[in-house]
Amino acid sequence: MADISVHTPEREAEFGDYFALLKPRVMTLVVFTALVGLLVAPVSLHPFVAFCAILFIAVGGGASGALNMWWDADIDAVMKRTARRPVPSGRVSGGEALAIGLALSGFSVLMLGLATNWLAAGLLAFTIFFYAVVYSMWLKRSTPQNIVIGGAAGAFPPMIGWVAATGSVSLESVLMFALIFLWTPPHFWALALFMRSDYDDAGVPMLTVTHGRRSTRRHILAYTAILASFAVWLGFTSAGGPVYLVAAVALNAWFLKGAWEISRRDEDMAEADNFAVEKAFFKFSLLYLFIHFGALLADAALRAGGII
């Protein structure tokens, strides 16, 4: 009897493999921050239009993830963290990933434009271009500032949500952008301090390798200090409120304390407690972003309820 698998040398993909191309875990952050940007805006959209706007922003983000997986399959295969992604593991071909990425990019931008406005659609198109071309193709492998510039792509969703509702880019949306943009470097550099070998193996220039770990620790402190001032500033705009201000002051004080401790430590101290401070700082950074945007949402709810 003929073996059917002769005609399919690699494991044929199931639907979940295509879904994995869209980086679902990154997508949850995109959905959350875009939703907050949309809900804190002074203009309210019809709930169904708002749902569609968030969906198209998420699909656009997913499309840029698929394009990234197509381009980066060679280095993903080398790094432990990414070796099981659909393309390096052979479940989805590179060509399929490229086709899905391009098709979903086109659909998401077009649909967001039709559902809301073309400024929001243009920003989504720029975000996809920025992540897939400027970050993945151009900067990721050539400069240790890759994390800083790549962070911009992740920072656009709340701005797109805001623009989808209001039709214009205003100070509040720029500050929400700055919050994620400036948060990304300390977050990833803390990770790079305790997850050492992966990026070296793949030949991706991380700051820890090119400028040394001592310099990386100082970079974390510098970015955290700038981040703190922008994060608190957002509290004084129309998007902020009492809940956000209290949360921002407390979270940034704690974050700065962590960054200060990281900058004071050397490698011997870090090795001695197995990078406890760096790991704690990284874990806290996730909570930091989540609570900031959650607090914006809480203030928006209080305003909608007429309490403030």
Partner: peptide, 10 residues
């Protein structure tokens, strides 16, 4: 074949 399950999911 196990393949049919994956095709069906797609």
């Amino acid at each position: 074949h196990e393949l049919h399950g994956r095709r069906k999911s797609r």
